[in-house]
Amino acid sequence: MTGDTLLRVSDLKVSFQTEAGSAKVLDGVNLTIGRGEILGLVGESGCGKSTLARSVLGILPKNAARITDGTILFDGENLLERNEAYLARVLRGRRISFVPQDPFSSFSPVFSIGDQFMELMKWKSPEITDAQAAARTILSSRYGRARRRRDAERVMEMLSAVQLPQPEAILRKYPHEVSGGQRQRLMIAMALLTEPELIIADEPTTALDVTIQAQILKLLKALAAERNVAVLFTTHDLGTAWEICDRIMVMYAGQDVEVAGSADFFARPNHPYTDRLLASLPGAEGGLQGIPGNIPGFVSPPGGCRFHPRCDLASDACRTTRPGVTALGSGHAVRCHHPLGTQFLKEAVT
């Protein structure tokens, strides 16, 4: 782990109001990302990884979601204590940017791509200081010609950095006129243009074909390294996480269960859930295992470790108390009363 921590989420609890009652979607989640680090947030659908990503961005649905406990420290400041206007003007899109799963619905269909890029630069250009952004008024929204020209240059540079052919032609097009892979490149370009410190990428390659996915991952990895941008990369695909992540954190049913460096994670899973998940990978030794049972409901989740109803090793302690963090060295930590430890040490999958 990099010594310089950029984002630290501690003991975050989020619940959603539903017809059936209060759903505890995040149950005391911890997460840290160092500067320039790519952290993979891995888990199956409904594990809360998107909710966690949205909490950091501050875009949880206001009427339904409630953050009941915890802190989100970004570069030392607690985002949960900041007001909405500050988050919207200073942080979101400037210091923290977002790459969505479906780039199509993230572009407005009625404006050309170029217009949308310039609209972004008008408000979020890296030339605007934090103070200017925070004090934004109608008067300060003037978009000077000189800055516009410099911003346009930035856009062109970025489009060539994301390897889009004929950038001028693309800027004149409308979102439906470019392919899915190109839209995702454009999304990455938009996310990087404002020179953020953190990019939150929510399953950015799930909707893409493998050959396109490979191109996009390669691009994201290279650009993040080049610009020293940290990436919070949520995915359900372990292969994708292996490709680009420095560290990987696994979530199950709203709880963080294990975090480790990428190589260590795949070689030495310590949480029973992680172990079973890796055994479900097609082609893994003893593959085709799966995990019997279903993800529990969030309204009345199982107590203690939420994985215990599906776990072979579950004991009374697991049913009553959430396990604390056990550090296993070199940034590997697990939250389990019965970590698999060295007796289950697996050979590196090759």
Partner: peptide, 17 residues
């Protein structure tokens, strides 16, 4: 070559297409 293989060579290192 585009398929990520856990523990294998990283596609992002050498993908060509």
């Amino acid at each position: 070559s585009a398929v990520p293989t856990v523990g294998g060579r990283r596609v992002t290192d050498d993908f060509q297409l």
